[in-house]
Amino acid sequence: MRRRFILTGAAALMAAFGLMAQTTVTEVPPAAAKPVLPTADTVLQRYVDATGGKTAYDAVKTRVSSGTFTLTGKGITGSIQSYQAAPAKSYTVVDIEGVGKQEDGNDGKTVWELSPMTGARIKTGTEAAAELRTSALDTYSNWKNYYKSAEVVGSENVGDKSCWKLVLTPNQGEPETNWFDKSTGFLLRESATMDTPMGKIPVQADYSDYRKTGDLTLPFKLSQTVAGQEFEFGLTKIETNVDIPATRFNLPAEIVALQK
């Protein structure tokens, strides 16, 4: 489970109302002795093992998630449906009350978004690469397919949880930082910068409420901070290896029109 469900348009939308919030990482005070850092391979393998193991990840060919969307503190809510298929196809629709459907997805090649507010757009470059990477079902179990390097750079707390802090450098795009819980191995936080036409937008995603679903243990709650706005996705159902109609990942007509 590692879809960021990023809503760049929605971030700008809320910014227009000027209400901003910020979350921060609490740094652990420097210890007297420098901690011995594990290798990135060790931390990532621990995460994969703690959440079901590589065999279980490799067996996942599709995933369907559904739940709720909340723009924290603004009274804006909605629903989310997300479809993923190996190796990295995706379609997500967030239906926001008072705004309408915000859709994004990819057919494995073309990465796109569609919104009643901002229209249709084909994503390119590092933005598209990031979307394909986070749409993959095996991002961590086969991380070397997506990242050219990974390094544990320190130890930091996320809330009261002591974490290993990893910097992963993707094959295309800027480095991303992940925090893995030392005690459970779970991914608790991710920080990255989205390179969008609206500018470089920092994104922080906090993962929690890990639950076993099928052979995997996945986070059912995502709290995101995008451009200072806080969003929350509460998933109520995650199903794996369910049939998804092949047409689910077809490009919408508005996107096809942009390709002409």
């Binding site: 910014a15 227009a16 109302f17 901003m20 910020q22 705004v99 901002t118 229209g119 937008i201 200072g228």
Partner: peptide, 28 residues
């Protein structure tokens, strides 16, 4: 809703990467 200006402008602008302007918040 601020970004609706971008959406409606799209019916009249045929070139990509055109901007109506820039909003400067404290962070970005």
């Amino acid at each position: 809703i601020g970004i609706l200006a971008m959406g409606l402008a799209g019916y009249f602008i045929d070139k990509p990467d055109q901007k109506l302007g820039t909003m400067y918040m404290r962070d970005l």
